[in-house]
Amino acid sequence: MIDPTFLDTPLYRCEALEPDLGCSVSIKLETANPVRSFKARGTELVASLLVDNGARAAVCASAGNLGQALAWSGRRRGLDVTVVASRFAPATKLHRIRALDARLELVDGDFDLARERAAAVARHDGIRLVEDSLDIETCEGAATIGLELVDAAPSFDTVLIALGGGAMATGVGHVMKALAPDVEVICVQPLGAPAMTRSWHQRRVVTTESTNTIADGVAGRRPIPAVLDDLLVVADDAVLVQEASIINGIRMLLDHAGLVVEPSAALGIAAILENRDRFAGRHVVTIVCGSNVDLDAYHRWIGAAPTGRP
């Protein structure tokens, strides 16, 4: 069901990163596709099943990347898509949603307020609410990344996964536990958006009043209980990283790998930067999950003075 343009993404050893990180690093590149993120792996499944079942419309809340992906998958299949997003989301993400012919509704709040509004639209219009990470198709789509890692990678010790709602972490994590159980699955979240990581450590849902991070794609406040249950089964650890480390990771991926990435995609590199001893001598795979960046903000991040060794 997934368009091949989103599958078999590049996976390669990036030796240029290794002297600064102190470990072997392979990159799984999920940005070289029409929506510049991994999200379409899941929305391809969602949209295909909706159309097969006679649906004509769907709505989702999005920090930006899911909305683009659902708009792309829906347009290919004649599905009317509504995306609810924060008006404070990166302008480039909002522009791409509109360009893909989705109806875009903006709310004066964060992603969790957009989730509430999307649910209200679904009830009012009688259409399917697509909930990232809760809908199993979004997790199954992300799980194909794990299948490709297992099939293509040489022996590796650890996979670092950006943690937001949890679709990628639970999808890839389940594959690792089933097919490569010796691989350590580590989820990474910003210190300024810690709800899911705190929930994992406390083994119960922990919410926060606000978020404060440049990594907008993972900035949720209210974990979904069913997703946390899955995460507790498949994740070996969940760590928090500082904003300075995320910015350093963005800069390193540009300087050493020639990659323009959004902050969420640099979380894996940030985790290594903050704990080089933990990863020393290991072969680590980091999933570069998105490259939809606001250019003005990006130029500020890469132009800032280096923040030094975390």
Results as ranks from 00 to 15, higher is better:
296 D>V: 09
169 A>N: 03
128 R>D: 11
263 P>H: 07
239 V>H: 05
37 S>K: 12
121 V>M: 07
116 E>W: 01
262 E>P: 02
300 R>A: 15
222 R>G: 01
166 G>M: 05
100 L>A: 10
161 I>Y: 01
94 L>S: 11
162 A>S: 15
23 C>T: 15
145 I>Y: 02
183 V>F: 03
63 A>D: 08
184 E>H: 08
5 T>L: 14
189 Q>G: 09
119 A>S: 14
257 A>V: 09
272 I>W: 08
141 G>Q: 02
163 L>E: 08
284 V>L: 06
308 G>A: 08
81 V>Y: 04
179 L>F: 14
24 S>P: 00
260 V>I: 15
160 L>S: 06
96 R>Y: 00
234 V>D: 03
188 V>D: 09
126 G>N: 05
304 A>Y: 00
14 C>Y: 02
138 T>M: 14
196 M>T: 15
210 S>W: 04
188 V>W: 05
182 D>L: 13
135 D>A: 10
62 S>K: 12
92 T>S: 15
294 D>E: 15
127 I>P: 08
58 A>H: 10
290 G>Q: 10
231 L>W: 03
232 L>P: 01
129 L>F: 13
237 D>W: 03
43 T>P: 04
125 D>F: 09
43 T>D: 03
284 V>Q: 08
55 A>M: 06
190 P>N: 12
278 R>I: 01
166 G>N: 06
26 S>D: 08
123 R>C: 02
11 L>M: 10
291 S>K: 09
184 E>M: 09
305 A>L: 04
299 H>L: 07
179 L>Q: 13
180 A>Q: 12
156 F>K: 11
295 L>Y: 10
147 L>G: 12
115 R>I: 04
288 V>E: 04
89 A>I: 01
93 K>R: 15
41 R>A: 07
82 T>W: 01
161 I>S: 06
77 R>G: 05
272 I>N: 07
114 A>C: 06
78 G>I: 13
212 N>F: 04
156 F>R: 13
240 L>M: 14
95 H>M: 11
95 H>L: 12
13 R>N: 11
147 L>Q: 06
136 I>T: 11
109 G>P: 04
66 L>F: 14
